[in-house]
């Protein structure tokens, strides 16, 4: 019975091609995806080890070099406090990634669990979960996030605002749940699930051993795409003054306040953080896109 493992039959929708080296194949099939993946890797390195990359402490105020233009000393120039913008962007990638990954992981996981449960149990449970998801879906993402911010205020643990992560994660839940449910439904009618049920396996075993692996592809795609959304959302909330606060390095925050005042003397204050946000979101979007094209056979040439 052990060979009822997920490798035997594959889902109708998402077929992982059997290649000796999937990474190499991905690079060949999706060159843009590969490029975006490299950007992500660089970003993650910068976010994980900012002290090795950033030439300055992002909090160091240096009134002697206010609004300095980009130079060998300050690659991206300095801001109104004389802080090194390049270093702040490097440290900012940590803020973006922590919040982006954490909230997308949280939201996508809860969404996936709800989606699978919905598909597996069907009937009344499905109905209740779907109605609840409908309610959450009636909020635009940023509106729901702002309501959560208003409701929970701030709880900072180890310098990370946990409520901000929750605020960004909640709008992700229904969107992932819906997609995962659809994918899981198509697996649910497969004969091997029936066989597993007939064999008297527990629900948990069937869900985690047999269904979950088959919704992995859509889950991964959603997870990646929502990291992009989460980074964008964090930047927006910080820009509005409702996310991260000064002097913590965060991209959205670098654009808020009086950054735009100095567009004439110091355009780098406006340009670089915006490029950083765009590039990060771009990379995750493109990667998610390529992942979808790669994993979804319908768009294969």
């Amino acid at each position: 019975m052990a060979n009822l493992s997920p490798t035997v039959p594959a889902s109708a929708q998402f077929v992982l091609p059997k290649r000796p080296n999937p990474i190499l194949h991905f690079v060949r099939a999706q060159p843009m995806g590969a490029v975006s993946f490299i950007i992500i890797i660089i970003m993650m390195f910068a976010g994980l080890f900012p002290q090795f990359v950033a030439p300055y402490n992002p909090l160091d105020i240096d009134f002697a070099s206010i609004l300095a233009a980009p130079s060998w000393d300050h690659w991206f120039g300095t801001d109104a406090y004389g802080r090194d913008i390049f270093s702040r962007i490097i440290y900012g990638s940590r803020t973006a990634l922590v919040i982006g990954f954490a909230s997308s992981a949280l939201g996508s996981s809860i969404g996936a669990v709800l989606g699978i449960a919905s598909a597996y149990f069907g009937g009344r449970i499905d109905n209740w979960i779907q109605r609840f998801m409908d309610i959450l879906l009636a909020f635009p993402i940023i509106v729901l996030a702002l309501v959560v911010v208003a409701a929970l205020r701030k709880t900072v643990i180890y310098g990370v605002d946990v409520n901000l992560i929750i605020a960004i994660a909640i709008p992700i839940v229904p969107r992932v749940a819906r997609v995962v449910r659809a994918a899981a439904l198509s697996v649910n009618v497969m004969p091997y699930i029936d066989a597993a049920r007939a064999a008297g396996y527990s629900d948990a075993r069937i869900i985690f051993r047999h269904m979950a692996p088959n919704v992995t592809a859509p889950f991964l795609i959603m997870f990646t795409a929502f990291i992009a959304q989460a980074i964008l959302l964090e930047a927006s909330l910080s820009f509005l003054g409702l996310g991260v606060t000064e002097p913590i390095a965060a991209w959205g925050l670098m654009l808020s306040g009086n950054a735009a005042d100095f567009y004439r003397e110091a355009p780098w204050m406006v340009i670089f953080p915006g490029v950083a946000i765009s590039l990060a979101v771009f990379a995750f979007n493109l990667f998610g896109d390529s992942l979808r094209d790669y994993l979804d056979p319908r768009f294969k040439t």
């Binding site: 992009a228 959205g252 654009l255 735009a260 915006g274 979101v281």
Partner: peptide, 26 residues
């Protein structure tokens, strides 16, 4: 087209707005 459209999904609208204002002024 794909790069331009993914750009649309990636560039924060508030930043794009700032760039518009700054360009008009400059």
């Amino acid at each position: 087209v794909r790069i331009v459209t993914i750009g649309g999904l990636s560039i924060p609208s508030f930043w794009f707005g700032m760039i518009i204002i700054v360009s008009l002024l400059t």
